[in-house]
């Protein structure tokens, strides 16, 4: 049988290179990745990429931002592949395939005030949305970013938090740390309590939250307390993934696959699915 049309194989990565590495925190680095033909692909905010060091492993990461010629992935050191990535230098060859997943439901966000709540590395997927909204500023209402990390050293994307985002028109940024150090003059405390103290009104707002599971759990409670409805709350999930295309089976939540039908879900959607994440 002769192949009439050359098909792209979704399980085979393209080869790319790391062209820049930014140290965000002691255990988070942002990797800028490109291929010979330029940007590997153009993802929507919140979509995912399968990144590999060929002889080590492959894993799914959220795409934290993109430029005209590259993708940015902020990656925390947690396992074998991420350790290898953290040891990599500029010029390292990587495999990349994607984009995967649904991304944030932009149609649902247009015209709304947006409340972004992030914790630790959980700001990574949300950052792609914040940057999108900043670039298409006229399409969205007020933007409010609330972010927290364990310590000042663990704050990701400091340049965005303290310089870029505060300069976005009609945008407010509040940052807290669990515990400050001698130089920290900002607020201290956990994100959920911080959110409650800031007391954002749910009126006309959509909240987008991402962070460690324990933080998400309590942020959801705080948002409910503040009067947010389930369809006003958006979050992203993490699961172990291998294929990224809904075949290998492991990232299922009920009959949905997080790699395909997620990772972005409204709380209303999540409540319809088995609590198994």
């Amino acid at each position: 049988m002769v192949e009439a049309v050359a098909r792209a194989n979704p399980l085979v990565p393209e080869l790319g290179k790391i062209i820049k590495i930014v140290d965000e925190t002691p255990d988070v680095k942002t990797f800028h990745i490109t291929t010979e033909k330029g940007k590997p692909f153009t993802p929507l905010p919140g979509q995912l990429a399968m990144l590999s060091i060929l002889d080590v492993g492959e894993a799914m990461f959220s795409i934290t931002s993109q430029g005209p010629e590259h993708l940015e992935l902020a990656i925390k050191k947690v396992g074998m592949l991420t350790e290898a990535l953290h040891e990599a230098e500029v010029g390292q060859t990587v495999g990349i395939r994607g984009p995967y997943g649904n991304g944030f439901p932009l149609e649902m966000l247009v015209g709304k005030d947006l409340l972004f709540i992030g914790g630790g590395i959980g700001l990574a997927p949300v950052r792609s949305l914040i940057n999108y909204c900043a670039e298409h500023r006229e399409q969205f209402g007020h933007m409010w970013i609330i972010y927290g990390a364990r310590s000042p050293a663990d704050l990701c994307f400091k340049e965005d938090l303290f310089q870029n985002w505060p300069r976005v028109p009609n945008c407010r940024v509040d940052v807290t740390v669990d515990k400050g150090d001698e130089n920290w003059t900002g607020p201290e405390g956990f994100v959920p309590a911080f959110v409650e103290k800031l007391n954002p009104s749910p009126k006309g707002k959509i909240a987008v939250t991402c962070g460690p599971p324990i933080m998400i759990k309590f942020v959801l409670q705080s948002l409910e307390k503040l009067g947010f409805q389930d369809d006003q709350i958006i979050t992203t999930l993490e699961m172990r993934m291998k294929c990224g295309i809904g075949k290998c089976g492991r990232c299922n939540l009920g009959s949905r696959y997080v790699c395909l039908d997620g990772p972005v879900f409204t709380l209303a959607q999540l409540k319809q699915l088995p609590n198994e994440y």
């Binding site: 080590v56 492993g57 492959e58 294929c243 290998c248 089976g249």
Partner: peptide, 17 residues
């Protein structure tokens, strides 16, 4: 269900499922 893994021999290797 399947897994995807690699196997390396020196400078070459395979990705298999």
């Amino acid at each position: 269900c399947f897994d995807i893994q690699s196997e390396n021999r020196g400078d070459s290797g395979i990705k298999f499922r």
